[in-house]
Amino acid sequence: MKFKGMHKISVLLIILLMATLFTGCSSNKAEQASQTAPKPTTVTVTDMAGRDVVVPAEVKSVALVWGPSTSFVLALGKGDIITGINYKSDFAVKVAPNLANVGSVGKGQADLEALAKVKPDVFIHKATDTKSLDAVQALGIPAIGIVAETPEDLVKATELLGKVLGAEQKATELIAFYNEKNDFAKNLTKDIPADQRKTVIVMGSELGKVAHGEMLQSFLVETAGGINMAKDIQSKEIWPTVGTEQIFAWDPDFIFCEDYTGAAYTIDELKKDSSFANLKAIKNNKIAYIPAHQDLWDFPGVQSSLGTLWMLNQMYPEKYSEADFIKDVNAFYTLAYGTTFDREWLGY
């Protein structure tokens, strides 16, 4: 009620203000109009599903129902204009406190009527779900499809969303950071001969589920100079199951685990389990969760460069020290959010 009242008052004030402006400047109004070309109210962008979408020149609100899209919007500093979201992580609420009051407009797929109620300026969703995109578009809400499976797509998505959300400058800076850190990691490890590179598997929510070569996690490992033992597994599935026996056969130097809530195992359990005791990675205590407790470092988004750097530090601390790593983490968060976060809170 209070809000509504204030809203009315502000509308009244604006009308009053405009009225005074009009009466005051009515003489030179025509002059002004001829001088400045009318600012376009919409722009047309081509999204990553290949659809031409007309979006407002100034997007004031955005709704999301697909997890990975959140990271992009947050990193671009536009968390404050999110008006519909499927999942609010602690991290998201911390960097965009307004999210505490934002409700859901669907999980994975848009709940069309809930979305119509929120009526965002733009809806951002995965490009592969054209059914949702078209249905939302039919409501008159511009729907932008993005793909974020590969590093190239991730850069393109950042660029596209920067343009749509009016954060081109920020997007350019983030992409520059992302490319620079990836190049840095590659250059640092390029001279390591193949037989001295660390071998790695990235394990999913169950024992024996691994990231194959097509997955972003594999890219992080390879960029950081490691060898993903599972990179040649042919599967269309995400996190294909190869079985624990295969993991014994690979016996990698490092095991990086996905930090899912509700995972079927914990690292502590593995360390206590005698049957795993002979694994190199367990023996040498080279098994760890990829930090994703708050910001998702192994998820599509520019923040995944931190995942690369974390792995780099884990595998080759002699080349890339912990202090360097902390400096880079802080640099990223200063760039993206203008602040730094506690190491403990971020969970690395």
Partner: peptide
């Protein structure tokens, strides 16, 4: 294909009128 085809197959399987 988990990204493009799987979702629509699951959609058929579950039964929905939302779209």
């Amino acid at each position: 294909d988990p990204e493009t085809q799987l979702a629509s197959i699951v959609y058929w399987q579950m039964g929905s009128l939302s779209y």
